[in-house]
Design a protein around this nucleic acid. Sequence first.
DNA 1: ATCGTAGTACGATGAATTCCGTACGTTAAA
DNA 2: TTTAACGTACGGAATTCATCGTACTACGAT
Lengths: 108, 108
Amino acid sequence: MRVLEHPEQEAIGLDAVLAALADPIRRRIVCQLADGHDDQACIAFGLPVSKSTSTHHFRVLREAGVIAQHYRGTAILSSLRADDLDARFPGLLASVIAAERTTGSPVR
Amino acid sequence: MRVLEHPEQEAIGLDAVLAALADPIRRRIVCQLADGHDDQACIAFGLPVSKSTSTHHFRVLREAGVIAQHYRGTAILSSLRADDLDARFPGLLASVIAAERTTGSPVR
DNA sequence: ATCGTAGTACGATGAATTCCGTACGTTAAA
DNA sequence: TTTAACGTACGGAATTCATCGTACTACGAT
């Protein structure tokens, strides 16, 4: 089983996090995770992009330290690293999610 | 005197704001403005880039709606649009500034 | 053992970004 | 009026990014 690299909490960088959250598709993923959908495969997010592009976006989020991923069978389950993010950048994730909810495009 | 375009408060986009704040030079500008240095010309920020690159970064911040700019003589004074940002994306600017202060590179 | 599903690797492409230097415009000061 | 200061416009080079298709691997189910 392949190993999925995750940055340690102290290694999470503001540049990477903000850049990761600057993309609407990635914010959509984050919002769905925040809604509690951390038990579904990447493919089940219904993103309007190809499978390989989807892989790319999940990887950017993981390498930035925004999400954690682990295998379950052939699927990968993702979850928000809300605690790590809030410890390092207090309030940041919450304000971005709130902003996306109020001004972003509705999902579907 | 040339006109400096600024987006209306309702037209400020989360994509543009996050992308603008994802750059360390631009966060440095924002932090200096938050420190009250809104009475100095762009050139006085002591940025480690050329004059034309500096112009570029200030323009990105202005067009994203993060800062306001107006001429005074040949100089341009910039200020944070903290109220507009907080109205549209509550808490976002504050958390980014706090994050930059605690984890970013110190400004000289 | 075969097949299907979830995701990855790789390479390509086009668009956007970062940065620079040079030349120019506008305004204030000498 | 001449000069200096501040910023812009433009063009170019290097880099990064989002996206895709195709081919592949890993795992589970049949």
